[in-house]
Computed example of a mutant assay.
Amino acid sequence: MSDIQDRHDSGGSGAGCGCLAVALLLAVVAVLLGRPFLTDDGDGGAQAAPEESVVATPTSERPRSKKPSGRRPGVVNIFTEQGLRGVRAAGTGIVVDPSGLVLTNNHVIQGATEIEGTDTDDRRTYPAQVLGYQKSGDIALIRLSGASGLKTAKFAEKWEVRLGDVVTAVGNAGGKGGTPSVVTGKVTALDRQITATDQSDGSSERLTGLIETNAPIKPGDSGGPLLNTSGQVIGMNTAASAGFDLEKKGASRGFAIPSAKALEIVRQIQRGEASDTVHIGRTALLGVQVRQPTTPSGGRAGGAYIADLIPGTPAEQAGLRARTTIVALDDEPVDSPGSLTDMLLRHHPGDTVRITWTNAAGERRTTPVTLGDGPPQ
């Protein structure tokens, strides 16, 4: 995904800053409107990927083509408005159902107050709604409203991903819109682990079992398909960001979530099965800007410090105050802005929660807050 200044159906250029970095944590459901940047977490080695890292195990060996597949149907250019930050952003999606179901990265739609998707096959633009997402796995499912009869991407069913396989990455590079960009490369590692870190509060998520490729994936390509030489989707591109060094020893580096893992979450969302990691439906809004509090000596303190309140939101209406620290939600301790987000993701708009907070004098108070309707986290 890529932050952009203007939206284009074709041509144009994206802004230089990437989609995965911000300076201040804007907590609407609590926190994490910020984009994570990603760091390598081990060399991944040349070991074979575990079962979850491949699409399927082939029933027999087959020859590998060395010719890239090129572009295939089922790609959507995604554009979002982040109204609470005054930012426009862009990414990519993969059509998984003709009715307009689209798979993408969670960080593509994170913080979005409005979402549009342009199907690159029929060239039509549709408003979109978030059906559900897994923040910890960077996976989301959206629906293009009013869409029907869309061409779907073809997902590999019997294809083992191997080191050296030729791959093609397709996406909305730079947020330019129009015909998707197509870049090629090879699989350079399997079973990669990377850590997605929110720069504003230091919270992080570990993504595992990833496919690494030297295809030059760029911001905006996030959520797009990684294709094998047969044009089948074997992964969903992610981790291309301005906050991550994409160059190492002169070679581009990108990562993809194996399609089997992504489709498993898609099916769970379609079934409406919420869990500790998968959020279904609309997202609750608290309405505070928070950061990690510090001790007088500059160390890390527990809780979520309220730097500011978003005007007109439930937090302001309930009487929460800036320069105080949230320390519990429904009597469950809050030790960081990230934990506050996780707790609030268990709730939905209209739920009433008890927020316990302390002021500079150490006085402790509990305030009931009825949560509003906010952007996905």
Rank of each mutant, 00 (worst) to 15 (best):
G302W: 00
I326R: 03
G171C: 14
K261V: 04
A251K: 06
A318R: 08
T118H: 04
A56H: 04
P219L: 01
A307I: 04
I211A: 05
T313A: 13
S222H: 00
P293T: 12
E51I: 03
S10Y: 12
T370K: 14
L38E: 03
S13W: 01
D342Y: 07
T184D: 12
I326V: 14
E247T: 11
T366K: 08
P293W: 06
S10C: 10
I234M: 07
G91N: 02
Q289D: 08
T324S: 15
E363Y: 12
G93M: 05
Y133E: 07
F244N: 14
L226Y: 01
V369I: 10
K186A: 12
F155S: 02
V369D: 01
G45P: 12
G202E: 01
A15Y: 05
D331N: 10
T168G: 10
A23H: 05
A240S: 14
I78S: 01
A112G: 04
F255W: 14
T294G: 15
G312Q: 11
A46Y: 08
L309S: 10
T168F: 06
Q199R: 09
G209W: 03
M343A: 09
Q134E: 13
S222C: 11
N214Y: 05
I310A: 13
D9A: 09
L150Q: 12
D122L: 06
V28S: 00
D331G: 14
V54P: 09
S252Q: 03
G224V: 04
L227C: 06
V327D: 09
G178N: 09
A322K: 13
Q377M: 08
Y305Q: 14
Q129A: 13
T120M: 09
L210M: 07
Q47R: 11
G338V: 01
T80W: 01
S275E: 10
V170S: 04
P225H: 02
P293K: 04
E51G: 01
A242R: 10
R72E: 05
G224K: 05
I217N: 15
E332C: 03
N214E: 07
S69W: 11
A260W: 07
W159A: 15
R206N: 08
D221I: 10
E316R: 06
T294C: 01
D198V: 00
G235E: 03
Y133K: 00
G11W: 00
A322P: 03
C17F: 15
L144G: 08
R365P: 02
A328C: 04
R365N: 10
C17E: 14
I142C: 12
R88T: 11
L210H: 02
G146D: 11
S99Y: 12
V266A: 14
G272M: 07
G171V: 05
V55T: 10
V161E: 04
K176Q: 15
R346S: 15
E51K: 03
V55Y: 00
T57E: 11
A256W: 02
T352I: 11
E160I: 06
I234G: 00
I306W: 09
I194D: 00
T229G: 00
P311W: 02
E61P: 11
D201S: 10
T59R: 10
R123T: 08
R192V: 10
L141S: 02
D121N: 09
I78W: 01
I306V: 15
P296A: 09
D245T: 02
C19S: 13
V54M: 05
